[in-house]
Design a protein around this nucleic acid. Structure first.
Lengths: 375, 375
DNA sequence: TTGTATGCGTTATCAT
DNA sequence: ATGATAACGCATACAA
């Protein structure tokens, strides 16, 4: 059996000479040496609420500053099991209000000390690879503005990584959503009140959950009001300006005439529909036909359009998402919570709407309800 | 002096029982134990081009899969000094083509095994804090679509973190830019050829480097052509739809009449100018006045506008940025390289332009030059 | 080709 | 309040 004599020297002999090797990184050992304290003292100085004397704190901070020392997040996350990274999955950054949502999410995460690690899969088939990528980085949580399958959601659960779905429907997951069904109900109510009879919808196809919701809301309200079922045109993968242009032509072809009102899945579709109707088909809007969009974009307010549309409270939604995720990260209790917001009607000039004071009382009460957040 | 008896057991006693503690992470040790190999063997299996036998590779991969093992990027980056993270600084995500650029950057980085860590400072004053944040994460490089000061650039150099500036002017740094001066030169040339005499500019103020470039190009070309100096209106912080609306009113007030042509710093300004001129001031466009934008956005192609504008090759620029950064990361040679792209003229119907075959030969040659990439 | 041993830079635990 | 020491999970030099 061998007998060892313990080395009295510390495990590593760090030299504080930072100006030597060119590429050597500045570590807490360098700062400690310069400040004349132990490395653990340095570490404590960078941990909020740790017990350090005023004097050492000052010396350490000065040393750190003169060496440009900044703690290494990789090493920290290794031991704390907190990366302060949040994966943000946005499937289509081209989506009209994705930029606004992303900017606000980034802000909100930053205010909570988290950073957005961006993932932009282009097809749904890339989601598997995207998730694998994500796990590498030991993210503290995931915010997904993408159509995750149940399998993907389960994957998050198995790894116990908190997940918040943004603006998509999903079962058994925390989510921040807009009540799209209520939105189209509201729109149909107002338009019907103003005398519109034959409705049409241009929207994404059945693959889109939000499109299904919008269609469901519109159909239900129309049925309640004993109005004819709407003509529905799905613009698969063409939920954009060109889709709106094709959509209105398809509707007229199918119906044999101009509908009273067209409700579009988003503002860009609506603008495409509007431009084509006005400039190419010569339809008087809103005289002969009303057009409404969803998800107000900047362009909807421009003088050439002044679109009647529904505004999602994107900022509030982003804030809610960050809030929800933060709560999930703190407490290890995975009780899913949903926050449902309701879009607000923006009365433009592309639809003939009854002014509010002419509406009967019952309808006014109902509309009033929509102005509030619902759970 | 104490005498120690060395423990014959390894430094750490890892149990492969993954299903015990609930939250325990799966490590390469777990995979090694299940596959009956050493931890280093597992590590090698995940390193492309390492020397592993076919047999062990298969066993390790199967074990890894059954345990849902994925290497921990934090631990890896600690030893390899490569985080595979790239900080992307975008100061204003509201900026018309920021989303497109970001999406393409994310794509291009991903194809090189890198991830975009997003930073969205809102004011220039936040840049210091942003950079400090960035250094924590040991990013492999930085792509900045923001106005970094020389101090910020120096900070990157001192930490030897590769930096690529996106779409901003900067000295002594690698950058991907559009030649905005050439863009406005081109526009002025074409408009002058078509008989425009009195020009006006609506753009951001002197604080914006790209605005200064555009103004410089326009002034220079006008001087060459012996045309009067342009009326210039700066819309500080209002480089948007409302800015364009205010801008055209200011120009007319200043000039006492309608100018022949208005060149706007971006398409949104141009659209604001156009809408106000047409719908509120009743100016016939392009009959009485020509309007041109810069940085083609989707809306510029809509039927209601069909704007004459300049298209930046954003995709190519994003690709070039990723390429440049990747090269910088690979080679430790910090020789700055610039890639300059030239915007392409989009001939809409908001400006009276001479058709190309009527231009004199000299001008045609010059224009042709602009179609190519310049260095 | 494979295994052993060590270090990356930090935080956490414990004794002082 | 402070310092010594042990993880965290991986990659790599070196020995076998």
């Amino acid at each position: 059996m061998k007998i060892l004599i313990p080395a009295s020297a510390p495990r590593r002999a760090k030299t504080a000479g930072a100006a030597e090797g060119g590429g050597r990184r500045v570590t807490s050992y360098d700062v400690a040496a310069l400040a004349g304290v132990s490395q653990s003292a340095v570490s404590r100085c960078f941990k909020p609420g740790a017990s350090v004397s005023k004097a050492t704190y000052a010396r350490v901070m000065q040393a750190a500053q003169s060496l440009d020392y900044i703690p290494n997040a990789a090493a920290r996350s290794l031991i704390t099991r907190r990366s302060n990274l949040v994966a943000v999955i946005i499937s289509r950054l081209a989506n009209p209000h994705a930029p606004a949502a992303l900017a606000e999410l980034s802000r909100q995460l930053a205010s909570r000390g988290k950073r957005a690690l961006l993932f932009t899969p282009e097809r749904e088939s890339e989601l598997d690879a995207t998730l694998s990528d994500i796990w590498q980085y030991q993210v503290d949580g995931v915010i997904a503005a993408a159509n995750l399958s149940e399998r993907h959601v389960a994957q998050c659960a198995r790894r116990s990584v908190p997940l918040v779905i943004f603006n998509r429907c999903a079962a058994d997951v925390s989510a921040v959503v807009c009540d799209h069904a209520e939105a189209t109900r509201l729109l149909v109510s107002r338009l019907a009140e103003a005398g519109h009879h034959q409705f049409a919808l241009i929207d994404e196809g059945e693959a889109s959950a939000t499109a299904r919701e919008r269609q469901r809301g519109a159909r239900a309200r129309l049925a309640e009001l004993d109005l004819p079922a709407p003509v529905v045109v799905a613009v698969e993968g063409g939920d954009d300006y060109a889709g709106g242009a094709r959509g209105i032509r398809a509707i007229i072809a199918q119906l044999g005439r101009v509908p009273d009102a067209v409700i579009c899945g988003n503002d860009i579709i609506a603008i495409g529909c509007l431009d084509t109707a006005r400039h190419e088909l010569g339809i008087n809007i809103p005289g002969k036909m009303s057009v409404a969009g969803c998800d107000a974009v900047d362009a909807s307010g421009w003088l050439s359009y002044n679109l009647t549309t529904l505004r999602q409270p994107i900022q509030k939604m982003a804030q809610a998402a960050a809030e929800l995720l933060a709560a999930l990260i703190e407490s290890r209790d995975p009780a899913p919570e949903k926050r449902v917001f309701c879009p607000q009607l923006v009365e433009g000039t592309t639809a003939r709407l009854q002014t509010a004071d002419k509406l009967d009382l019952a309808l006014r009460l109902e509309l009033n309800k929509h102005g509030l957040m619902t759970m």
